[in-house]
């Protein structure tokens, strides 16, 4: 992703459901259209982030996987 994220949340080491709960909390403080970079090591995160974005209407811009880390870019709905 070429765009610089507006916020970064490092949820490394956190297990379900904390990455989603923290993501939701940070997202609430952001403006529509802004992008959050979420870093997680929970192997359930790809599925959970997808379910959460589809439920909340936020957009999963892209996701990648580097070693143990999953990196997601999520754009706030507006």
């Amino acid at each position: 992703m070429s765009e610089t994220p507006d916020e970064v949340l490092d949820a490394s080491g956190m297990a379900c459901p904390m990455p989603i709960i923290k993501t939701n909390k940070v997202m609430k403080s952001m403006q529509p259209g802004q992008v959050l970079e979420l870093i997680a090591t929970d192997p359930g995160a790809p599925s959970d982030v997808k379910a959460w974005t589809s439920r909340t209407g936020n957009t999963l811009v892209d996701s990648s996987h580097e070693g143990e880390k999953y990196i997601f870019h999520i754009r706030k709905a507006g």
Partner: peptide, 11 residues
């Protein structure tokens, strides 16, 4: 507790 605390994040 896991399910109930996650629910609000999904509206």
């Amino acid at each position: 507790l896991i399910l109930a605390t996650t629910a609000p994040a999904l509206g």
